[in-house]
Nucleic acid binder design. Structure first.
Lengths: 201, 201
DNA sequence: TAGATTATGTCAGTCCATGACAGATGACAA
DNA sequence: TTGTCATCTGTCATGGACTGACATAATCTA
């Protein structure tokens, strides 16, 4: 990896970190692009060369996490049922985060706090999840061998499960990957309890 | 109702109609507030006295529809199980739209087309649904007598069902309340098939 | 090291959104 | 009817998000 590429990555991360800190400190709305750019010693114009919008920088960690999830999903064996594969991929993604760089973990948790505190950003995360859902739907349809209403339902149920699992966490749980993980397992267990056997086949 | 109040209502509807027509004609992004205001012969400043943002005017019909749904939900007998009450309330809301003014129907369908065509607006609708979900959760918790993870799951499942039912409609279905209604019933039937008995109790 | 690529800064401009103030219009009582 | 009050509307000024164009500076490659 060349110097240019390394520099770009470094600037990107610096922008994300500066933005998240400012958002947490003084709120998303009252933080300006100029402030973020100034904190990283970059021109405001350059900010928009790294992120399409102010919202994007707040959602960058979530976007990256989704990519990790999709990669995990791709690696699941074809023998697993659709929902099992999705749940396992999510467990894998959480594990990667838990065992990864502490800085990445911190960044992810900070971003989650910003998302929870800012309705605009929360809506943006929904948009991300919806976009992701299209790709998940393809995987579910592939495994079920049918692109029908039921595949959509399985996919939507998974999205809901993740959402409920991550939502309404207390502050402690927000700053703790293990807390999130536990709540996720509770929700998966509930799905198992309330769905008829083979519902995702 | 006085003259002043009637005038306000008229202006509001005129702004929505003008906005939706412009959005459909030339796209949401490339339509300016100035254009919308000019079409209704009102100053741009006045537009923002009726709607908090450009997004709000596109989501106005959806917001109104949600209010109708919540009103229907409030009228459901307390003997119904949570999910049954939610489904019945949705059927009631759709019926009200079907049997209502043709203009209201047209407006609603136009708004849906704009939502489908514009990612930003789609995200906004998600935000609306999430805000609504909080109130639905209260009703579910009340009927179940417990404010726990399961209530959240029932609520999230309902939201997903509605979303899947309305989503990915063909152009024909988009311009047809009955088509939407049929698809909704298919989705409700699927829930009934895939969930264990008494899952929402 | 020279030349091609690519990143960055500066500048000008558009559009969304909001506060402040003044003029216009409907509501209401005498 | 008329005068007063509350409310609606237009105008103006401002700030902040975003974008295109162009020049400069940094990296890359031969």
């Amino acid at each position: 990896m060349g110097l240019r590429e390394r520099k770009k990555l470094k600037t990107r991360v610096a922008l994300i970190d500066a933005a998240l800190d400012l958002f947490l400190e003084q709120g998303y709305e009252s933080t300006t692009i100029d402030q973020i750019a100034a904190a990283v010693d970059v021109s405001p114009r350059t900010f928009f060369r790294y992120f399409g919008s102010k919202e994007d920088v707040a959602l960058a960690p979530a976007t990256d996490a989704q990519d990790v999830f999709l990669s995990e999903l791709h690696d699941r064996p074809g023998t697993e049922s659709p929902f099992t594969a999705l749940a396992q991929a999510m467990r894998g993604a959480v594990a990667l985060l838990r065992d990864g760089e502490p800085e990445d973990k911190q960044r992810f948790l900070k971003a989650r706090q910003v998302v929870e505190a800012t309705p605009t950003i929360f809506a943006g995360q929904m948009r991300l999840m919806m976009a992701n859902e299209q790709r998940i739907l393809e995987e579910v349809s592939r495994r079920r061998g049918a692109d029908d209403l039921r595949s959509q339902f399985v996919t939507a149920t998974f999205t809901s499960t993740i959402r409920v699992g991550f939502e309404n966490c207390t502050v402690e749980e927000l700053s703790d990957i293990d807390g999130m993980s536990r709540r996720l397992e509770d929700t998966f267990a509930l799905v198992d309890e309330l769905m008829v056997a083979g519902w995702d086949h």
